[in-house]
Design a protein around this nucleic acid. Sequence first.
DNA 1: AACGCGACCTGCGAGC
DNA 2: TGCTCGCAGGTCGCGT
Length: 327
Amino acid sequence: MPELPEVEVVRRGLVSWVRGRTITGVEVVDPRSVRRHALGPEDFAGNLEGARVLDVVRRGKFLWLPLADTPAAGPGGGPSGPAAGTPVPAVALMAHLGMSGQLLMQDSSVADEKHLKVRLQLSAADGMPEQLRFVDQRIFGGLFLTSLIPTADGGPGGLAETPLPLIAEEAAHIARDPLDPYFSFEEFYRRLRARKTGLKRALLDQGLVSGIGNIYADEALWKARLHFARPTDTLRRAEAGRVLDAAREVMTEALAAGGTSFDSLYVNVNGASGYFDRSLNAYGREGKECKRCAAAGLASVMRREQFMNRSSYSCPVCQPRPRNGRW
DNA sequence: AACGCGACCTGCGAGC
DNA sequence: TGCTCGCAGGTCGCGT
């Protein structure tokens, strides 16, 4: 489940089920889902068994579970935490859902999903499912173990129950996301202006701002009334602020609705779909009226264009490309 | 630096 | 009833 709201739905669901529990068994059903773990499936499983889950952390679309008691990190977690009794993790279980990945909590009695890729057995806990399953139809996502390293700015690595100034190494190259309290608009705007590219491409660049994918990029651009090809070096501060605020608002609303799902591919850890698809104003609305224009008594039809090998939806009237080439 | 493209995959609906 | 094509919420790495 791709974009930030859908991943955050998973993070929140996962926290209450897995925090503090120990991974007692690992079954890699399809090694392709663990291919980003360079040392192979056996090493992946061996280092996970016996590990205790300390938290669930998210930055952008990346999710990771800081671990204590892994063989790789030694007993008690990482190298010498400051206060005894509070383990500082050095290793985390990374998860990226790609296009179709799911993390599901299931009882052992529930039949395996068709696309079950990895099964984690968890220590018994009252009334809680025993298994955390990674299910992935297209196998663009995956699980792997990674080191935790200090963040560049000293702030928390991501959204967590107990924030630590550590980040999963494999997520260190992405920027903070718009829902992160440590996100800096000033830095975003400075870097945006320095680029020679189009606005949608910039919004999708996880190194500049993370968490935004194809749906919420189109929604944010529509809400901010900006064209996807707008050159980033022509953007005024107010316009950049408008599109960032729009992204933040639309993702916050989507999160409250449990995320966007058009089909059963996008579900929370309990298998339920969100319903934000009903609130979409741009994505997938080719040939339909622009809701804002219609409200103003104008008749305009949403268009679909190919851009970056994917579809972009926008309103030709309120998100115009200027005829004279001047923005 | 920026970009375009292919690679990584499975499945679904449309059209013939 | 097939079959092929285009399409899908992502990311990475390679060319130019």
